[in-house]
């Protein structure tokens, strides 16, 4: 099979970009989408042209590095699957496929289809952690966790931080990512000490990064390769509301023992 690619090409952030059409050579239908791009890039390199820059790492659908908005949908046409797990047999011979980078102010473009998603790391630094003692691994099951709680936390922890939620949202909102990170720690007993500080810190950092707000359109949930539920956004709203009412903790004058 052969397809025509309409790809966003942009040298760097300060140079304006444009769509460029690339014809693929003959493809194996069982190639992944990224392997198809590899083949196209090999052809471009052989011709002495600049290959298409795109993000990829594990190619197993678990690292969250691959991105791409394929025909208007982040991670391509399937539900619950990343770009690297999308295969060319999904498309028809002779199709024109439009490939764009994730577009958001908080994800500045680096080159072609590669965007800078460090904003997610900064949000994580603002509260995506728990306090544990160092030393030997704690005894298993020393802290009892109900099965249902563990399951919910695991549903949230599935988030691979790819940023598809931001790419799909009409507001370029990062709520689903932030909600998943706040919830997977906030649901567990180990995450309780920082629960409200975490919600406040991560949401405030999200706002600082320039992501939009939530209009509950459900686009994020629809494109999430890990099918994270909007329920977690409601949970984040709850925790953040409590954090807002509590306000910032003040040091007690005679304190220090705690």
């Amino acid at each position: 099979m052969k397809v025509t690619l309409k790809v966003w090409r942009q040298k760097n952030r300060s140079t304006p970009g444009a769509f460029k059409t690339h014809e693929t050579p003959e493809l194996n239908v069982n190639m992944s989408f990224l392997e198809m791009l590899d083949v196209v890039n090999e052809q471009l390199a052989n011709r002495g042209e600049e290959p298409i820059a795109f993000d990829h790492d594990c190619r197993e659908g678990i690292c969250g590095t691959c991105s791409l908005v394929i025909d208007g949908k982040p991670h391509g046409p399937h539900k619950g699957i990343t770009t690297c797990q999308t295969y060319m047999r999904t498309f028809n011979d002779g199709d024109e496929i439009v490939i764009e980078p994730f577009r958001a102010k908080a994800f500045p473009l680096i080159k072609d289809l590669v965007v800078d998603r460090k904003a997610f790391d900064r949000i994580q630094h603002a509260g995506g952690y728990i306090t544990v003692r160092t030393g030997a691994a704690p005894d298993a099951n020393s802290v009892p966790v109900p099965k249902q709680t563990a399951d919910f936390a695991m549903d949230a922890a599935q988030c691979i931080g790819c940023g598809a939620c931001v790419a799909a949202c009409k507001n370029a909102s990062a709520m689903l990512f932030v909600a998943a990170k706040i919830s997977h720690l906030g649901l567990m007993p180990q995450g309780q000490p920082e629960r409200y500080r975490r919600a406040k810190g991560m949401v405030d950092q999200m706002d600082k990064e320039g992501f939009g707000a939530c209009t509950v359109t459900g686009s994020c949930e629809a494109v999430c390769p890990k099918e994270i539920s909007l329920d977690f956004i409601a949970r984040m709203n709850r925790d953040y509301g409590v954090a807002l009412l509590k306000g910032d903790a003040k040091a007690v004058k005679s304190g220090g023992a705690g």
């Binding site: 208007g72 958001a104 908080a106 009409k170 507001n171 707000a213 209009t215 629809a222």
Partner: peptide, 21 residues
């Protein structure tokens, strides 16, 4: 929200969003 996406997509975005939303 509009400031959060300075450059729009060439294709139809907002996959899975209801018309009203």
């Amino acid at each position: 929200n509009s400031a959060a996406r300075p450059q729009a997509y060439a294709t139809n975005g907002a996959h899975g969003a209801s018309t009203a939303s």
